[in-house]
């Protein structure tokens, strides 16, 4: 008896000791940081700033990192990562900036180069970074068009008109995005509509860059029509969801009444049992 108790305790202590020796909980680290971030993050001054700025950007939110724009090889830990042979582009000169961003933002580049701003490139005119920044690029909104920034070079007048034309539509786009997100959250298949809306928003935003008031106004009307179609679909779905709730209310109500009736029936039996 005593022997088996001692044996049991010995085994238990061994097991516990072995357990304590084991490492702490395993982490599910999914991040494999690229070499650009790993090196530059710890650097002081202007070499390290871009990382902090980039982290809050919309590019970072969507998995676009240093090499996506600057080229190079983020898998190499040595200076070779920044070798031109590995596609490294370095910092673009001012006149190359539209091409730099336009590798992905194709439509915007097209409209910009045709615009008054594009024609003034290299002669004191603005390029992408002027309004959008370079590392802390945020989701584009009409707030980028404002008196302080635009009057750096000229009068605000026409800029204000463009902003007026687009603000309401941009707001509607935002509202629809929110509604679609709520529907997505409810299990509705919103991928197609979200795609349509995204495409619409992109074509809407690229046309700002032409800085032509009349063109912006005309396109805005067209975008509004397409938005209306999506809005209509969303409203139909919301109506369906409401009808479901009404049906649900009826079902729950019937069940509660059924339960109460059964309980009252039980009580009639209970009275007889007593």
């Amino acid at each position: 008896m005593i022997n088996s108790l001692l044996l049991f305790r010995t085994v238990l202590s061994t097991v516990v000791m072995a357990a304590v020796l084991f490492s702490p909980p395993s982490a599910l680290a999914q991040e494999t940081e690229n070499s650009c971030l790993q090196c530059h993050e710890s650097q002081p001054g202007r070499l390290g700033e871009p990382v902090t700025l980039w982290r809050t950007s919309i590019h970072a939110d969507n998995g676009i990192a240093c090499h996506s724009c600057h080229g190079g090889d983020p898998a190499l830990m040595s200076m070779e990562a920044m070798d031109p042979d590995r596609g490294f582009l370095g910092v673009p000169v001012e006149t190359d900036i539209p091409d730099f961003c336009g590798r992905c933002h194709v439509g915007v580049r097209e409209d910009y180069l045709k615009s008054a701003h594009g024609r003034a490139l290299g002669k004191g005119g603005p390029q992408c970074v002027t309004c959008h920044g370079n590392h802390r690029v945020m989701k584009a909104s009409p707030a980028l068009i404002n008196p302080q920034d635009c009057s750096r070079c000229h009068e605000y007048g026409r800029a204000g008109e463009i902003k007026g034309a687009v603000e309401e539509t941009d707001r509607l786009i935002g509202v629809l995005e929110g509604d679609l997100a709520a529907l997505h959250r409810a299990g509705i298949a919103t991928r197609e509509m979200e795609g349509e809306l995204f495409s619409l928003r992109n074509s809407f935003h690229r046309l700002f860059h032409s800085v032509e008031v009349e063109r912006v106004r005309a396109e805005t009307a067209r975008v509004r029509d397409d938005l209306e179609k999506i809005r209509h679909k969303v409203e139909q779905i919301q109506q369906t969801l409401f009808v479901r709730k009404v049906g649900g209310g009826i079902v729950v109500g019937l069940l509660v009444v059924a339960g109460l009736l059964a309980a009252f029936i039980r009580r009639t039996y209970h009275e007889e049992e007593a």
Binding site: G247, G248, V252, L255, A258, G259, A262, A263
Partner: peptide
């Protein structure tokens, strides 16, 4: 006698289930 009680509690649990399903 007791089955009536079973029925009542079942109904209430189903009401809870569908309340969550719909609302």
């Amino acid at each position: 006698n007791y089955m009536a009680k079973d029925a009542a509690v079942i109904a209430f649990f189903l009401a809870l289930l569908f309340a969550i399903v719909f609302f």
